[in-house]
Design a protein around this nucleic acid. Sequence first.
DNA 1: TCGTTAATAAACTAAATAGTTCTATAAAGA
DNA 2: TCTTTATAGAACTATTTAGTTTATTAACGA
Lengths: 216, 216
Amino acid sequence: MDADSETETKRKRIRNPAQTQQRIIDSAIDEFMERGFDGARIDAIAEQSKTNKSLIYKYFNSKEELYIASLAGTYAQLRASQNQIDMDGPDPVESVRRLVQSTFDTFAQNPRIVRMLTHENVQNARFLKQALTIKALYTPLLDKLDRVIRKGQEMGLFRQSIDLKHLYISISALGYFYFSNGYTLAIVLDEDLTEAAAIARQREQAVEMVLSYLRR
Amino acid sequence: MDADSETETKRKRIRNPAQTQQRIIDSAIDEFMERGFDGARIDAIAEQSKTNKSLIYKYFNSKEELYIASLAGTYAQLRASQNQIDMDGPDPVESVRRLVQSTFDTFAQNPRIVRMLTHENVQNARFLKQALTIKALYTPLLDKLDRVIRKGQEMGLFRQSIDLKHLYISISALGYFYFSNGYTLAIVLDEDLTEAAAIARQREQAVEMVLSYLRR
DNA sequence: TCGTTAATAAACTAAATAGTTCTATAAAGA
DNA sequence: TCTTTATAGAACTATTTAGTTTATTAACGA
């Protein structure tokens, strides 16, 4: 089923630095996301990426640098996911609905993003500023949100005096928290929150909350 | 200014096991909250609590046990805070307002709670189940919420078919996330979220969101 | 006053792990 | 064919740190 058969003939060794580096980063994200900076083990990353420590330290120079690269990669995923949200329809209500749903889905479908950000926050964003130097991390979602809210206000559908950044925070909160704190919530509430039905319920509630708040 | 003057006469050594253990736990919460389980250092806890490692290991037998005690202590604080919420007024709308505000304030005023829970979640609630064995951690907030929602429904003020647990999650989310993810949010949004005005705005928005969702 | 035990302090062990070094192999391009 | 360099991997070092041990001090109750 798999081309890699250690048991049979020796696998042909392919030389592809870029791809190897990406494989290392992917494994690093897995490891850092699972165990955090302190808990992560370079040896584990070497093993999972099917490389070795010498190679990792050749491409990245320290655990810290590798972590920063992983963090930047995570944010790239987040931005990519946010860029896909289609909000060009004529109905602002429908657009907001989509935005809230998509934001929710992003967190639902990318536990790696949620966990990496959580780790970063719990460390007081120790490395995020450095990751920022690598790539601009500004979220495109804010602009989209701005446009659709204005439109809704002009059409008389939405209330006045909406704080955009705080609205963005709340929309994120309603999705993020469900997944970031799922473990303790499940225990304290004694409920399985990973079921599709439960997730759908939370998603719909988030949409309704935001929309009923916006409507005048 | 302080009774402890190492420079002057030797401080009288007081024997008070219970208080010493509490001092150790307090310091442990500080350390675990700041650095997480892996990052925390027993030596640091010894220093901060003005005790020593031998004593710590006499009272608690391992880092893990000390962490669990700290976690249980954190939940005790959370419950205590939730128990104070007064929701016995005649107006369900006002009661919900208070509940959302108090929940928000709990997280605003107790960063230790937020951080401990975040650490625990990022470790897949590795220790919470054990902390549960020590003390019942069921949140009293859920019962209060149940009563007030029912009342509001009977009075025709609130919508039907409200999922209590999910509502509880959303109310928590709107407060918790703001503080748990404040660091990355501040960077990405380029805004100081620790200002009193910003906090007040988020709080009011949370109240409005929940209330406009509940109202029929 | 005496024995128990809470508290102090320092040195130590054992294990884990980030980071280095060295040697070897083989793919790709010239 | 030859040279460069990506890859592999093992052994090593230096450091950190959980947990132990041992010795000492002094508060408090009997």
